[in-house]
């Protein structure tokens, strides 16, 4: 295979663009979350830094960077320093396989608006989303703190409850599009979004990704009312910031994946494809914030009960029904 320098340059440009956009969006997600939560609670939210508080993420960043980088006595040094990166990097890596716009033509080259169009994109997502939990588990374990350890145990208990139903809810998507490649899945929805065929799978996936990005009602690993801050109790400064921004990157990425799998990715009438994609991602982000403003936290036996006894069987039945339907339709 011969690599054209322009292709390589374009790929690097795409990577830089994705990094920049994702990190900026994640920073402003924090701001948006604080604003929307404030509105839900009849407050105003951050409005001191810059116009309408729009420079708040910058102020937060400066604060986190200038804070002391603290390591508790007895903490496992390497794992403690490694864990935040292990939580944040897989989250942003998942975005590599998400197509965020229709292919463009630049300098006579066809540019797919997707960093890597892998033929196992969906499996890569499943693998990376499981790796991200290692950051939680190791960070909590390496902190030498009981709250952090309890948080990471809950994180693992949560992982084994939602991961299976998340994977199973995506099987009908693969059956319908007959591909693990995310661009094929998007193209298969150019006529009709999969949410129309698979509303149940969509609901299961939505609940599972709420658990995946550790959001209320499934924020057991951090449960600030019970575990101080859960697995990142002992972290400070930019290491805490990495955990934090990793969670918001996760929201964006999982929102993008939900849009890709069920809402037709960048497909949509009238508006440009990239706008459709970003709009869908932001709609999911808003949904997560809204749910956070509404629901209480589940106990973790309730979550495991829900994951294993309700979501997983439902997802299996859904796969069977989809299979029968596809056979009957031929």
């Amino acid at each position: 295979m011969i690599y054209d320098p322009i292709d390589i340059a374009l790929t690097l440009a795409k990577i830089a663009l994705v990094f920049f956009v994702i990190l900026t969006m994640a920073a402003y997600m924090v701001f948006a979350e604080r604003k929307v939560l404030a509105w839900v609670q009849d407050r105003k939210g951050p409005n001191r830094v810059g116009p309408f508080g729009l420079l708040q993420p910058l102020a937060d960043l400066i604060k986190l960077l200038t804070k002391e980088d603290f390591r508790p006595i007895g903490a496992d040094k390497w794992l403690f320093y490694l864990a935040p990166a292990m939580a944040a990097i897989p989250a942003i890596m998942i975005f590599a396989v998400i197509p965020f716009g229709a292919p463009l033509t630049l300098f006579g080259h066809t540019v797919t608006l997707q960093v890597a169009d892998l033929n196992v994109g969906l499996l890569l997502f499943m693998a990376l989303s499981s790796i991200a939990v290692y950051g939680v588990a190791l960070g909590g374990w390496a902190s030498n703190s009981k709250y952090a350890l309890l948080g990471s145990i809950r994180g693992l208990a949560q992982l084994i409850s939602y991961e299976l139903s998340m994977g199973l809810s995506l099987v009908p998507v693969v059956m319908l599009s007959r591909s693990f490649r995310l661009s094929d899945i998007v193209n298969a929805q150019s006529g009709c979004w999969f949410i129309v065929y698979q509303p149940l799978a969509f609901v299961i996936f939505l609940i599972s990704i709420a658990a995946e990005c550790k959001r209320i009602p499934f924020d057991l690993p951090e449960a600030e009312g019970e575990l101080v801050a859960g697995f990142h109790t002992e972290y400070s400064g930019m290491r805490f910031g990495l955990f934090f921004v990793g969670e918001y990157i996760n929201i964006i990425v999982l929102g993008g994946l939900a849009a890709t799998f069920f809402l037709g990715g960048w497909h949509g009438p009238w508006l440009p494809p990239v706008v459709w994609f970003v709009g869908k991602v932001l709609a999911f982000a808003f949904l997560f914030i809204w749910v956070r403003g509404t629901l209480p936290r589940l106990r973790y036996d309730q979550l495991m009960h829900f994951g294993w006894k309700i979501l997983t069987p439902l997802a299996l039945v859904n796969i069977l029904v989809t299979g029968w339907w596809m056979v009957l339709r031929g």
């Binding site: 929307v36 404030a38 509105w39 839900v40 609670q41 009849d42 407050r43 105003k44 809204w290 749910v291 403003g293 509404t294 629901l295």
Partner: peptide, 22 residues
């Protein structure tokens, strides 16, 4: 019950904040 809760928080998003900017 879930949707009722969601509807209540949705209504509150558009309510005027009670905050007094001291």
């Amino acid at each position: 019950a879930l949707l009722t809760g969601m509807w209540i928080t949705w209504k509150h998003i558009f309510r005027r904040p009670v905050t007094i900017q001291y």
